[in-house]
Amino acid sequence: MHPGEVQRIQIFVPKVRMTFNTLEDAAKFYKDYAKAAGFSTRVWSTNKKENEIKNQLITCSKEGKWKSKISSTEKTNPSASLNCLARIYIHILKNVGVWIISKVVLHHSHSCCPNQAEMLKQYRELSMSVCRTIENNEEAGIRPGKTYQSFVAAAGGHHELNFIEKDVRNYITREVKNVSELDDAKEFGKYLLRMKKKNQIFFFELELEDDQLIKLAFWADARSRAVCEYFGDVISFDTTYNTNRYNLVCNSFVGVNHHSQSTLLG
């Protein structure tokens, strides 16, 4: 669509009305269609009555006019406002309790690229295994760029990934570097409780300071307790001495039994 061209928008009511049990199902249907067509969506407006949603408007993410802060005379590569009007209207049928798509606008003011849809922000995601690798690499001091390139190499190319390097850097900033000591203490306590729930023989003691930071912690799993009972007393005293980014002070001596002798640290 060229600047100054009148955009003809065709709004139509579907002849065969699809029904959905929930608003989320209807929104997911349009999101799946958008991904296949090569564009992303966003909820533009939601109308409620007595705290109950009655209808919702979902548009193309490029809806609306964008005004640049740079004057048109200074632009080296000027572009027209997108103002895309592709959208759907969803509302609930009274006395039936089902949702329908009542109106649809399919025309876009821009080109859509189905083969590049996974690179749109709405569809990019980091799996649990990817997040774990990012955390481990960050802990080891590996640069985000190197981490991302390792994913590229393992997948066989950039196009085989459904995320970009920016997503890796954002995850490090948002999830890794902003972890507080208080959150660490809470998560550690939850972990000990989960282990106890899995096996009642698991034993732990956790004591927190007044500010909810860890003062002392001790735990022993079922195997360790059985070995201790069979072979005798065991002392474990591991030391880190503020060597990691959490400034954790944890000391450890390693005991000796008749099978092997371990180095004693102090």
Rank of each mutant, 00 (worst) to 15 (best):
R245M: 08
Q149W: 12
K177R: 12
K62N: 11
A117N: 07
P3R: 02
Q261R: 10
L57R: 14
V256F: 04
E209C: 05
S129H: 08
D183Q: 13
T133H: 09
V43H: 01
E207L: 01
F39V: 00
D210P: 08
L192N: 08
S79C: 12
E207M: 06
N77G: 03
Y230C: 07
G255N: 13
K94E: 15
I58Y: 14
E160P: 05
E50G: 07
R174H: 09
T46D: 03
N137C: 14
T59M: 15
E5F: 03
G156I: 10
R174M: 11
A140Y: 05
F202N: 05
A117F: 00
E135W: 01
L161G: 04
R132C: 05
T243I: 02
I53A: 05
F204H: 15
F12Q: 03
K65L: 13
N55A: 06
L106D: 13
C112H: 00
C112I: 02
N77Y: 06
T243R: 01
L82T: 09
L206R: 02
K65T: 08
K186P: 10
E165M: 02
L206I: 04
R194T: 08
F39M: 01
M1L: 03
G156S: 08
E187Q: 13
E63D: 14
S68N: 12
K31L: 03
G232S: 07
N257M: 04
V13I: 10
Q10W: 01
K190M: 14
S109P: 05
T73H: 11
S81L: 02
K75N: 13
Y30K: 07
C84W: 00
V254F: 04
D221N: 15
N55C: 13
L206D: 06
N257P: 04
N77R: 10
Q116A: 12
D210K: 12
E160M: 13
C228W: 06
N21V: 02
D238N: 11
F188L: 15
L82C: 11
D167G: 05
A220Y: 00
N199I: 02
E5N: 06
L23Q: 01
S180Y: 02
E5Q: 11
E5W: 01
R143T: 10
D233S: 13
N170P: 12
C228R: 12
L93V: 12
I142Q: 14
D25Q: 07
C228M: 11
N137H: 11
K75M: 15
S150F: 11
K35V: 02
E138T: 13
A153L: 12
Q122K: 05
T59G: 03
P78F: 00
I58A: 10
L192V: 01
N242T: 09
A34R: 02
V179E: 14
L248G: 06
R124E: 08
